[in-house]
Design a protein around this nucleic acid. Sequence first.
DNA 1: GCGACAG
DNA 2: ATCTTGTCGC
Length: 212
Amino acid sequence: MRLAQLSKNQREVAEAVRIVPLKKRVSMIAGADVARNGKYLFGSMAVLSFPELLLLDESHAEQREPIPYVPGFLSYRELPVLAKAFSRLKKKPDLILVDGQGIAHPRRLGLASHLGVVLGVPTIGCAKSHLYGDYEMPEDARGSYTFLKSKNNRIGLVLRTRNNVKPLFISPGHLIDLDGCLCILLSVTPRYRIPEPIRQAHRMAGSRARSA
DNA sequence: GCGACAG
DNA sequence: ATCTTGTCGC
């Protein structure tokens, strides 16, 4: 599979991405993450109540890695195992927090956006580092943020979730907008740098990958 | 040609 | 992503 072909596919799928205000009231938020062990990928989803953040459900899946990691094409590697994990959830979340970018992507189709379109569920991309877009570093205090921009458009946020700790790169995935992301993020990040739903999914995927 | 480059 | 103990700071 050539990257030029995948790029074309990304541009097509990206046309289905909808950046609009959240519709439903949110009562369940899932975190999604993938861990690796050799040639296998382990995907986990943790569903937490909102705003209480208590674990309500979890699901897991594993599969051989489709393609190696290539910056800009992460979804073709991690989306399959996450979609499989999602199908195994008993409780379907109102929103999914994904470890990666949303529309803050060269072709507006980061993992969170791609997963959102495929599942038809609202998603937010929560990346630990920068991939795409221009920005200024936000102040050091938790809650401080600046905008991620592309051609004079605001495509995401660079948000400090803890004092004096590297900021997160947040961008809408699908069926949500910037205000929605901002409204949700700090509430799901009460103690650590990483949003609680993603932290839990990260630990689940990691432990399963290690014991395989 | 050079630098940047989610996980 | 992953390899990994102690250590600095609130």
